[in-house]
């Protein structure tokens, strides 16, 4: 968070565009959109100094629903696009939005390397354990016995554990949020943006269309029983053993973020030519 405050603070409404989302009624992503706009207002940012970058999927439609600069790229590549943008323009606040298919499946490799690269950006994944846009196929976080047309009887493949992977890969901030509590999500996003380096916010965001049973998440989600730790070993033990419904900041690291563009040139092009000159 390093954009200058040039005008009086805005409200959440100022960050919401007039586009009507394509999401189904009841989708958890509406609340995430609300939370993002609230967080940006709380951070006293201006829309022009924030970029929201995404890939493909239901959740990845979020950039245009904000009044910020948006980049809606190709499937799975939101993190590289966001990384390039933040490295080239360290003055911007960069939020990268994704879903469990976009972020953990097709974009899985970028997730690992974004965590270890530790560029100062915030990665918000709306996880609903299903591919919604393509109408109900299992994703990496889907339970192995969840039956679908593509995998009748279930995939039989164990779930991906994004928070553990993030920790092991070097993410500097790890939080879990639940879209049923937009104010809570907003508070976590604020903290994530303020924390230097790669901040990862996994948001449980129900898909009421293809996973109606996820309405029950509001009963399961609860504040994490203990405060966050900065000790990766302790964090690993907690993340490995929790049931996936502990909400809050779970880990805050102290790694220095990746450096962006240097402040100023030290050489001219003619100086570089000197290296070739005979």
């Amino acid at each position: 968070m390093n954009a200058p405050i040039t005008s009086p603070a805005l409200t959440a409404k100022d960050f919401k565009s007039d586009y009507k989302p394509v999401w189904c009624p009841g989708c958890g992503d509406y609340s995430v959109l609300t939370a993002v706009t609230k967080a940006l207002a709380m951070l006293e940012l201006r829309p022009e100094n924030v970029a929201v970058v995404s890939g493909i999927g239901c959740s990845s439609r979020i950039p245009a629903y904000t009044t910020c600069y948006g980049f809606h790229g190709v499937h799975g590549r939101s993190l590289p696009a966001g990384t390039g943008l933040k490295v080239a323009r360290p003055d911007l606040t960069v939020l990268v939005a994704s879903g469990d298919g976009d972020g953990y499946s097709i974009g899985g490799n970028h997730f690992l390397h974004a965590c270890r690269r530790n560029v100062d950006l915030t990665y918000i994944v709306m996880d609903n354990h299903v591919y919604g846009m393509t109408k109900g196929q299992p994703s990496p976080t889907t339970e192995p016995d969840w039956s679908s047309k593509l995998a009748p009887g279930g995939t039989g493949v164990r779930e991906f554990h994004p928070l553990v992977i993030a920790l092991a890969s070097g993410a500097n901030f790890i939080a879990r949020a639940f879209s049923g509590d937009p104010n809570g999500v907003a508070a976590l996003i604020v903290e994530a943006v303020r924390h230097p380096g790669f901040s990862f916010v996994e948001v449980l965001s129900p898909c009421v269309t293809f996973r109606p049973e996820q309405r029950g998440w509001k009963e399961s989600a609860r504040p994490a029983p203990v405060a966050y730790t900065d000790d990766p070993a302790r964090a690993a033990r907690r993340l490995m053993t929790d049931d996936g419904f502990n909400i809050g900041v779970l880990y805050k690291g102290r790694r220095a973020p990746f450096a962006g563009l240097p402040a100023a040139p030290t050489h001219s092009l003619a100086d570089l030519e000197g290296g070739f000159r005979l």
């Binding site: 790229g73 590549r77 696009a81 990384t83 390039g84 943008l85 933040k86 080239a88 323009r89």
Partner: peptide, 8 residues
């Protein structure tokens, strides 16, 4: 994709 992000 990084190059596209930077160029954007």
């Amino acid at each position: 994709n990084m190059a596209l992000g930077a160029s954007y």
